[in-house]
């Protein structure tokens, strides 16, 4: 299975995305880098169905599946089934516990199963199910956000700066989950400013002036910063 992004365009006062095209194969991790305001989050929000594109398409290329060539930008039901999205910030309800937040996305009977063998357990969220979100650390919140996005076992996970402002142990836990997800055939698209996450990805794309190009990241942050 491959997720293909073809010619996605978006214009506000200026052109933010200009016929952006690339693809993400199952089991791959793509990182998307770019300067602030370059359109990375806009692209992710379009792929997640939050924002509307002015043009282009987003589909699953799969010869055996019936879903092949159905546009995910317009087919909300298919998109919800195949794609998980973790936006910037804390997409959680602060007053409620982790359990209550999970209940928004999971059915009550799925949670114990996921705590034992699924993603809730893998991310370590089962350790703080009764803690209210406003009492959680940044890392706990981020792990809970990812657990929420993983409801329904999506095939592609879109993450907008998933480890921004987190400490090292937290990052490691999240990166461990990414590796597991990839190993099980899941695809990842990370919008990031973190060199560590770029290293984690199989391919790095640079978004500049509304267009994407492959950036062969070799660990040289200074060169990358100059290219942005």
């Amino acid at each position: 299975m491959e997720f293909c992004i073809e010619g996605i365009s978006k214009q506000y006062k200026k052109t933010v995305l200009d016929h952006v095209s690339f693809s993400i194969a199952s089991g791959a991790c793509i990182s998307l880098v770019g300067a602030n305001g370059s359109g990375k989050s806009t692209l992710l929000s379009i792929l997640a169905g939050v924002n509307k594109a002015d043009g282009g398409s987003f589909f699953v290329s799969d010869d055996v599946s019936e879903e092949s060539r159905r546009d995910l930008l317009t087919d909300g039901r298919l998109r919800n089934r195949l794609i998980g999205y973790v936006p910037q910030g804390t997409p959680l309800i602060e007053e409620l516990s982790a359990m209550d937040n999970l209940l928004l996305w999971y059915s009550r009977r799925d949670i114990p199963e996921s705590c034992e063998n699924g993603v809730i357990g893998l991310l370590g969220v089962s350790e703080f199910l009764d803690v209210a979100v406003h009492k959680m650390s940044g890392g706990m919140k981020k792990r809970l956000s990812i657990a929420c996005a993983m409801a329904g076992n999506p095939s592609l996970l879109l993450l907008d700066e998933p480890t921004a402002a987190l400490d090292l142990p937290c990052r490691e836990k999240i990166y461990g989950f990414f590796r597991d997800f990839k190993a099980n055939g899941g695809a990842l698209l990370l919008v990031t400013h973190e060199p560590e996450e770029i290293t984690l990805s199989d391919t790095c794309y640079l978004l500049k002036n509304g267009q994407v190009s492959v950036y062969p990241y070799d660990g040289d942050v200074h060169t990358l910063a100059e290219r942005l």
Partner: peptide, 15 residues
């Protein structure tokens, strides 16, 4: 006041 834009966006993304 307790709402969060990222939450609203995530909810919107999920239908």
């Amino acid at each position: 006041y307790g709402r969060d834009l990222s939450f609203e966006r995530l909810v919107a993304a999920r239908g």
